[in-house]
Design a protein around this nucleic acid. Structure first.
Length: 489
DNA sequence: ATAGGGTTAG
């Protein structure tokens, strides 16, 4: 096969990858095989990537199906096992496109075919293990790292710390950090950001102090984390200091949308709306020809206004965002609708929801429905909320098919409704909501408490007795105990 | 190898 021909195939395969078109990939594969039986490594890589994206799209699941597994394994076999590079390329591609399980499949094939894992492969494994929350796998990789001597690499070390931090094993993360022979800012940041993510503000702060002692300069990543700490502890003074050192020490801070977003968020959570607005207004419009304001920056400003009750500003800002040519995404609509919810502007909230579907052609997620149900419930419109739930395009009540919260998003939806029922004393609807919520998540303590509150408020003591039996049956007595005494006592 | 936005009853 000529290199010209190979490039043409690669071009078409790239198209398959982007459009996730399985049939096209298969046709192309057959055609390529007719042309030549020996495929170059890079052509093989392209082929694997398009198969993976389209198969994944077809199955719409995070697990690997048997067919999928077999096709991939066969393709892997035709890659030269003496060189880790093509495998690493494929694995990192999978990782960066949200297919961690496929990355792991690639890496384990690589390992069991006798390819020596280099630092790239180890880092990918740890990242993917963290992404699918596989603690056992990460620990196996850790053992391999200890044996093979890769611990001396700051890259591997950072990935290891990041893995432990992301799986909430903070103690292991800290130990890995302490035991590293060579450390740099990135390692420290991985640990610090883990603390921040786990809302362990004080541990985070003392680590930053320790970094100074180790002679490490805080970089933009550290600053992002520090701003979150300030927001979490409502330490506005520290926040102002961080703002100051951003201006003094960070190059092109005026155009760094990451830092600007964090700063706006920090000021907003500390209640200093004007300051947040000031930072926002001076981002990406000024002197240096820097980055434009993006959706995320707008969302943070909209969130600040919403949380602080500045409803008119939310409306105005959203308009300005559209006029500036920034495309809204699903999350910015959540921010806007929930701002309507906070401030009691039911009709506007519903209008935004409709506009999202009709004007921008987006499919609302379950989270959007939750938000609108909450909006309606706060306004006492229980029937309309129920009506909306019944018209949702999701399967409700049964176990979940939701994105990331496990079984909780169905629950939050019915929970919002149930909560409104408690306020209005609506027993029939409340009973329905409680039943549905418990079908979705039988061990959710909050639902039991809400339902028993509702029963207690209308004096349905026999119903509470039944509920108590149910709880004991499911072995949850300990958790609910305290709330229980409050209600019946 | 590490970073930014939303929802869940008060």
């Amino acid at each position: 096969m000529s290199s010209h021909q190979a490039n043409r195939f690669k071009y078409h395969l790239k198209h398959c990858y982007q459009s996730k078109n399985l049939n096209l990939t298969k046709t192309l594969h057959a055609y390529i095989l007719k042309t030549s039986h020996f495929l170059s490594t890079s052509l093989n890589t392209s082929l694997i990537l398009s198969y993976s994206s389209s198969l994944h799209h077809h199955n719409n699941t995070t697990t690997i199906s048997t067919t999928h597994f077999n096709i991939l394994t066969n393709l892997f076999k035709s890659i030269d096992p003496s060189n880790p590079l093509p495998f690493n390329t494929i694995a990192s591609h999978f990782s960066h496109h949200g297919h961690p399980s496929l990355a792991l499949h690639t890496l384990s094939f690589m390992h069991f075919s006798g390819v020596v894992l280099d630092s790239y492969a180890i880092c990918s494994s740890l990242t993917a293990a963290a992404a699918i929350r596989s603690v056992g796998l990460g620990k196996m990789v850790h053992a391999h790292v200890e044996k093979s001597g890769w611990l001396s690499s700051v890259y591997v070390g950072s990935a290891l710390i990041d893995f432990y931090a992301k799986t909430s094993a903070f103690w292991d993360a800290r130990r890995a950090f302490d035991e590293m022979p060579v450390r740099n800012v990135v390692c420290a940041n991985a640990l610090f950001l883990g603390f921040v993510e786990g809302r362990m503000w004080e541990d985070g702060l003392s680590l930053v102090r320790r970094m100074r002692g180790l002679g490490m300069e805080c970089d933009r990543f550290t600053m992002c984390g520090l701003l979150k700490v300030c927001a979490g502890l409502a330490k506005i003074e520290l926040g102002r200091q961080v703002h100051g050192s951003l201006i003094r020490r960070i190059d092109a801070f005026g155009g760094d949308v990451f830092l600007r977003t964090s700063l706006i968020d920090m000021y907003g959570r500390c209640g200093v709306v004007e300051k947040a607005r000031h930072v926002f207004d001076h981002t990406g419009v000024g002197d240096g020809g820097e980055e434009k304001r993006d959706v995320i920056l707008w969302t943070s400003m909209l969130g600040v206004c919403g949380r602080n009750g500045h409803f008119e500003d939310v409306i105005q800002l959203f308009k300005e965002m559209l006029m500036e040519g920034t495309k809204p995404d699903k999350i910015v609509f959540l921010a806007v609708i929930s701002a309507c919810s906070y401030t009691g502007n039911v009709n506007q909230g519903l209008q935004y929801f409709e506009s999202m579907v009709c004007d921008f052609g987006m499919d609302p997620d379950q989270e959007h429905y939750s938000c609108v149900v909450d909006l309606l419930c706060r306004a006492g419109e229980l029937e309309r909320a129920l009506d909306l739930i019944s018209r949702m395009p999701f399967k409700m009540g049964t176990s979940d098919n939701s994105t990331r919260n496990g079984g909780t998003s169905n629950t939050s939806l019915w929970g919002a409704l149930l909560n409104a029922c408690v306020d209005t004393g609506n027993v029939e609807l409340g009973k329905l909501a409680a039943e549905r919520a418990l079908e979705a998540d039988p061990r959710n303590v909050g639902i039991y408490v809400l339902w028993s509150n509702l029963c207690a408020s209308v004096g349905m003591w026999d119903e509470i007795e039944k509920l108590r039996d149910l709880i004991r049956e499911r072995g949850m007595m300990k958790d609910v105990g305290c709330s229980w005494l409050e209600v019946s006592g």
